[in-house]
Design a protein around this nucleic acid. Structure first.
Lengths: 124, 124
DNA sequence: CTCACATGTATCGGTTGTCTATATATAGAT
DNA sequence: ATCTATATATAGACAACCGATACATGTGAG
């Protein structure tokens, strides 16, 4: 019954792992969301590439809330209870720092895989 | 006694985690290396950002070798024994795929954190 | 009503992978 | 003999992701 990931899928998943917090925080930067809508937004924004399972998302959200980076409130409409999340001031600050770190990191890895990792010869 | 990471350091470390294999493979794409030299090369290429601990590097190298992405041979000079690694054909192929996936992934996350994640209105 | 499915939140447990600490060994400097 | 740098290796602690599972509501088909 498998569920076994191919090596390609495994790599993509590993890549994602390092920046899940950043991505969720980024989604919440635009506007408030509830868990399920974060899933959908992330999937849409990544053109289907990011599929955050519920078993990953909710514990992650709880961790972010414990760290006071986001806060939540329950809200009901049409009989549906949803737990809405928004960034705290601390969360906004952290996001800003992480975005900056992301750009540096991404540039660094990109240079490395392109064989330009801080080598002594800028000429040519 | 500490050893406690700050949240910033933790984030940078998490970012790294997703692409360790890619980075090691990339270093080996240029030329053969032994473990210790991979550490140094990675540190230099990332301007000190990447500090791969030995306890991470060697198990990682063993995993890569088990997967037949790299191969090793012991070589001695001036009394120093070093285990040299090089990419296998399979490893080269995998690296190529992973580099491509990295670029897609990086672009995707960059768009997301810049608030441009596949939104319906390109006009304006 | 019942079935199936999408929506919506939540937790447990297995698995995987990183990191600290530790062990071993060579070699040059003091 | 001790310190530092080089060089490889493993064990155990710890953190995190994710599949499976559970629960509840709403809608449309039969």
């Amino acid at each position: 019954m498998a569920g076994k990931l191919t090596q390609n899928e495994k790599f993509e998943r590993d890549l994602l792992r390092g920046s899940l917090d950043l991505m969720v925080l980024s989604v919440l930067a635009d506007e408030s969301h509830y868990g399920y809508s974060i899933q959908k937004r992330l999937s849409a924004a990544s053109m289907g590439k990011v599929k955050l399972p519920a078993g990953t998302l909710y514990p992650l959200l709880h961790r972010l809330e414990t760290d006071k980076l986001i806060r939540s409130r329950w809200e009901e409409s049409t009989g549906r209870k949803r737990k809405w999340y928004e960034l705290t001031a601390k969360g906004k600050k952290r996001l800003k720092v992480q975005v900056s770190q992301w750009h540096q990191y991404a540039q660094c890895v990109t240079n490395l895989v392109n064989g330009k990792g801080a080598q002594p010869k800028p000429s040519g």
